[in-house]
């Protein structure tokens, strides 16, 4: 039952994803991609469990590496997306 439940979530979010992303204008496709990079850093939430385990040295090292990689995505992704989006200015705002 657990599996069916997870697949249920998967299918719904895939549809939602298509619905949402197809509304993003071409102008913002690059920030969309870097923002997606940041969101895929969600693996971080999973990596904690592995890195925090004590019973296996190897598992801990792998988990720690996963934490590092995922944090690169989260921090780097959100920061660079914010930097880019900050450049998009409206005419009305007078360039600021």
């Amino acid at each position: 039952m657990e599996i069916v439940f997870l697949i249920f979530i998967l299918v719904l979010s895939v549809f939602l994803g298509f619905e949402l992303i197809s509304k993003v204008p071409a102008t913002l496709h690059t920030p969309l991609m870097s923002g997606a990079n940041a969101i895929s850093g969600i693996t971080l939430a999973g990596a904690f469990l592995s890195a925090g385990m004590v019973d296996s040295e190897m598992g801990k090292y792998l988990g720690t590496a996963a934490v590092a990689f995922a944090t690169v995505n989260v921090v780097g992704g959100y920061m660079v997306t914010d930097r880019m989006l900050g450049m998009f200015k409206s005419k009305k705002a007078g360039g600021k």
Partner: peptide
């Protein structure tokens, strides 16, 4: 199930430095 935080914090600091510098 998370018992030790040293590794987690270490990994996060490392990742944040790399990601932050790259983004900037």
């Amino acid at each position: 199930g998370i018992v030790s935080y040293e590794y987690i914090v270490g990994g996060m600091v490392l990742g944040a430095i790399i990601g932050g510098l790259a983004a900037r």
